[in-house]
Every structure is written in C-alpha cells, then in structure tokens.
C-alpha cells in the first residue's frame, strides 16, 4: 500500500473576482522509502499541493480531494487535533528560504527541541542529547556549541541544515522538501541535496522533492511528476521521462536544458508564460504554448491518461521518437 495516496486534489483561494483554483486534479502517490520529484515552473502549484498535504493551507484557502490518505489514515476526515499529531512527526517539510523560515527570536537548538517536545519523541532529559545528535547528523560542526546560536548568526546553508534537522527530528516517514536549495549558492546546493538523499537512504523515509531543476531530478528521483498551471501533466519513472517524455510540455522543458542544447547557436525556450488567474485558456491549459496544438486542444480539456506510471494529460501524447500520436493526418 502506498504511504501517501491522493486523488483529484484541488486547492482553491477566494479572490476579488471569485474562486481561483491554484491546484486542480492532482494525483500524488508516494511509496514507503521512495524519492519522488515534483517539477514545474514557478506558479505551477507544486508548493501549494504539498502544503495541502501538510495541512498548511491557511484560511481562506480550501482543500478538496476524492482520496487523501496517509499511511492508511484518511486525512480529509481527520480532526485538526489528530492531524497535528501526524504533521511534524510522521510527515515533515523543509522550506525554500532557510533564513526566514526559522524564528529569529529563539536559538536553533531550542527550535529543534520544540519539535521533539511537541510529539514527545524522546524522554525529556534526553532532548538535549538528541538535538546535538541531530545537528551532528546534518553535518553542523561543533554541534553542542551551535545549539545556542540564533538564526541570524548562521549562514543560509547552516540554517537549511537546521531546518532539515528539525524536520527529521521525529524520524518522519515522509519528508517533503520544497525547493530546499533555491536560496543557496551552488556549492551549498549540492551539499544539501546530498545530505537529503543520504538521510533518506539511512532513515528509509520517503522523500518528495519539489524543484524546478531538471538536473536535480535526473540525479535523485526515482519517479517524476510534472506540474503545469496547477495541473499534473505527466507522471513517469525518471529514466523513461528523460528518454521519452510523453507530454509536449515535458519535452519542451527537457529541450531547454543547456546540456541538451550543445552545438546549437541558441538555447531553445518555451514561448509565452504560464497562464495566470485571468488568462487561463479553454481546452488544454498548455495550448497557447504547444508546438503540436490541434483543433480539439483549444476546446476540450484533456484527461490524465495512459498506462499506470506513464500517464500524460494530452490528446496527442508523444511517442518514443518525440512525435505526437493519434493525430489525424
């Protein structure tokens, strides 16, 4: 049985012009001990869908789903008190901005200890030892002396390590990392990613990594979900995704990788931008930017179809040669 199973997730926000669906019809399945990558441009709903899993969508946002199950527990019907017992303990999250994600008023050791105390993860006298152990585990030098440091006294990379220590404090079964390296410089990015993956291997926890870096995806993930404008457009195993993307959007994203554009004068780009609140097209949301756009793409929204583990939200999914299928000649 999957650790996390979500069917048809939708997140809506009230705006001045009515309700806006930031996330629509997203399915997420994560198995125990698996690494799943969620990729997509800014504003594609990656973060929002994972915040919804954590129950962190604040009022007036509204989360709906057909199924939302974590380790056999139905999250939808769960009272918030029960939900809080899961959040931070069995599922934890690391955020994008380490410098602003830690409370500036408290020492980092205290903030990690708070996570332990909130879930009674270890006996009270052992909290301190556990914090030192965690700081050591995430690679912070001289952990015992860093416990009393405030976030402003540490670098961004160190703060992100603290965030990770906090997230893994209660040995979660699922760790969600929301672009954990975006705010860091390149050498630190690599260290943090390696740390996350080694922790995932040691602890056997599942890791959901949100990113927009295809290089990261290729190196880390077993399975990939591609998001576009709040919808999941493709889901594949990593290897086959890179060799044979089925959705034109995925194919275009891969074409835009500098590594794949060697020898060309110009780096291919995807024309246009992700549609915003007001300018969502009818039919397929990707149609204004798609190379293979057809008549029915403009009118009929495609459904997520295909064999399990290789589904795409496209009327004419691409074949192994990168050509659209099912197009009337």
């Amino acid at each position: 049985m999957a650790l996390l199973e979500i069917r048809n997730l939708a997140v809506e926000f009230a705006t001045a012009r009515g309700r806006f669906r930031a996330v629509d019809g997203v399915d997420v399945t994560i198995d125990e001990g698996e690494i799943l990558c969620v990729v997509g441009e800014s504003g594609s709903g990656k973060s929002v869908s994972m915040l919804a899993v954590m129950g962190l969508i604040a009022w007036p946002g509204r989360v709906t789903a057909d199924v939302m199950r974590f380790a056999g527990t139905d999250l939808l019907g769960l009272p918030s008190r029960q939900r809080r017992k899961l959040v931070g303990k069995d599922m934890a999250m690391v955020f994008q901005e380490p410098m602003s994600s830690l409370n500036p008023c408290y020492p980092v050791g205290w903030q990690i200890a708070e996570a332990l105390r909130a879930h009674n993860a270890v006996a009270k006298p052992k909290v301190r030892d556990r914090v030192v152990e965690l700081l050591d585990q995430v690679g912070i030098p001289a952990p015992a002396s860093r416990m009393g440091a405030f976030p402003h006294q540490l670098s961004g990379g160190m703060n992100q390590r603290v965030m990770i220590a906090m997230a893994i404090a209660c040995n979660p079964r699922l760790l969600i990392a929301d672009e954990p390296t975006t705010a860091l410089d390149v050498t630190i990015q690599k260290q943090i990613l390696d740390l996350l993956i080694s922790l995932q291997k040691q602890g056997g926890m599942a890791l959901a990594l949100i990113t927009h870096d295809m290089g990261v995806v290729a190196e880390t993930a077993q399975r990939v979900q591609v998001m576009y404008a709040g919808q999941m457009v493709e889901e594949q195993l990593t290897d086959s995704l890179f060799s044979a993307p089925r959705h034109p959007y995925t194919a275009a994203l891969l074409d835009a990788l500098p590594e794949r554009a060697m020898g060309r004068a110009r780096l291919p780009t995807i024309p246009g931008v992700v549609p915003g609140i007001d300018d969502r097209p009818s039919g397929c949301l990707f149609n204004p930017r798609c190379r293979f756009v057809q008549e029915r793409c403009l009118t009929t929204p495609p459904q997520l179809e295909g064999p399990a583990g290789a589904r795409a939200r496209c009327h004419t999914p691409l074949d192994a040669a990168g050509q659209p299928t099912g197009v009337a000649a």
Binding site: F95, E114, H119, M166
Partner: peptide
C-alpha cells in the same frame, strides 16, 4: 505571514502555541 510561522505550524504545534510563543514574541 512570516515563513517561520509556517515552519511552526509544520511542526504540528497547537494554534495557541504558534500564536503566543512564535508570533507574539516577535
């Protein structure tokens, strides 16, 4: 609206604790 309030909620802390310990202090 700060990020660290979201972090506090992500720890599974109760609403009064988030509001008083994490928000009010700041």
């Amino acid at each position: 609206n700060e990020d660290y309030i979201r972090t506090a909620r992500a720890k599974g802390l109760s609403v009064p604790r988030v509001v008083v310990v994490h928000a009010l202090r700041n």
